[in-house]
């Protein structure tokens, strides 16, 4: 079975993608999206595409999950504006 690495990379990426789609909580989904980015980068390297793996690494590990987490933080803080702690302003 000569294409074993590609097969395993494919199964890992599909499982990670399914997990990322079906994780309902956005914070948890951001972390699973980060793992999906890793799985895709591995799959692309096994499919002999290092350039695409590089761009997926740069996007998938830091950029996209970070923006999702920042959006969650902004959206989550909004409904709690009546809590007394809100008056002291933003976090670090």
């Amino acid at each position: 079975m000569t294409e074993l690495p590609v097969l395993l990379g494919l199964l890992l990426a599909t499982t990670a993608g399914t997990a990322a789609a079906l994780t309902r909580d956005p914070v948890h989904q951001a972390l699973v999206l980060s793992v999906l980015g890793l799985a895709l980068a591995l799959l692309f390297t096994l499919l002999q595409a290092p350039d695409v793996a590089l761009s997926q690494l740069a996007v998938g590990t830091v950029l996209t999950p970070l923006m999702v987490l920042l959006s969650v933080r902004k959206v989550r803080r909004r409904p709690r504006e009546d809590s007394p702690a809100d008056g002291r302003g933003g976090k670090r």
């Binding site: 950029l63 970070l66 920042l70 959006s71 933080r73 902004k74 803080r77 909004r78 504006e81 933003g90």
Partner: peptide, 20 residues
């Protein structure tokens, strides 16, 4: 572009607070 994008999201999440 990535720096400007992240700057917008970081500002929104860490600095901008609704005025009471």
């Amino acid at each position: 572009a990535a720096v400007v994008l992240l700057a917008q999201f970081l500002d929104q999440a860490l600095e901008l607070v609704p005025r009471e």
